[in-house]
Amino acid sequence: ENVVSAPMPGKVLRVLVRVGDRVRVGQGLLVLEAMKMENEIPSPRDGVVKRILVKEGEIVDTGQPKIELG
């Protein structure tokens, strides 16, 4: 899985990584606000952040790609 998608609709509060960052499985990639709760979205695997496809403040839909890992 190279693309991390939104598990639920919500607002991107914070992006916790930058392009080029090495990430580990379970590491937080971003914080999504859904139903007035903050949810940290974890990396599904070890890898390197290739692209960030969302911006802080953006509203995302379920299944929308957010971060691409290499």
Rank of each mutant, 00 (worst) to 15 (best):
P9A: 13
S43M: 01
K36R: 11
V25A: 13
E56C: 09
V19P: 08
M37W: 08
L30R: 00
V48F: 13
L69C: 04
L13C: 07
G57E: 04
V15T: 02
E58N: 05
G47Q: 03
R51N: 10
S43P: 02
P7F: 10
V60Y: 05
Q64E: 06
R18Q: 12
P42G: 10
V12W: 00
G47V: 02
G10N: 02
R45P: 01
V49P: 02
V48C: 12
V23F: 02
P42Q: 13
P44K: 05
M35P: 04
K66W: 15
R24T: 12
A34T: 13
P65Y: 07
D61L: 13
V48Y: 14
L13I: 13
L53W: 12
G10C: 08
E1S: 14
Q27H: 05
R22K: 12
V17M: 00
K55R: 12
V23Q: 01
P65S: 08
E56I: 13
R22M: 11
A34V: 14
L29N: 00
L13R: 04
P65H: 09
V60S: 03
V3L: 12
V25C: 12
E40V: 15
G26P: 00
I59Q: 11
I59M: 14
K55F: 11
V48D: 03
L53D: 04
P42W: 09
S5A: 11
I59P: 05
V19I: 10
V60F: 04
Q27W: 05
E40I: 15
L32I: 14
D61H: 14
P9I: 09
P42E: 08
K36Q: 14
K66M: 15
E38H: 11
G57R: 02
D46T: 08
L29A: 00
G70Y: 15
M37V: 12
N39R: 14
V49M: 00
R24E: 09
N39W: 15
P9D: 06
V19G: 02
P44C: 07
S5V: 14
P65F: 07
E40A: 08
A34F: 14
L16P: 03
N39C: 15
R51H: 09
P44M: 06
V60H: 02
E68S: 07
M35T: 08
E38V: 12
S5F: 14
N39Y: 15
V19W: 03
V54G: 02
V17I: 07
D46Q: 07
N2D: 12
R18N: 11
L53A: 03
V31G: 00
G28E: 04
V4M: 05
R24Y: 12
P7R: 11
M35G: 13
A6E: 04
L13V: 12
L13E: 02
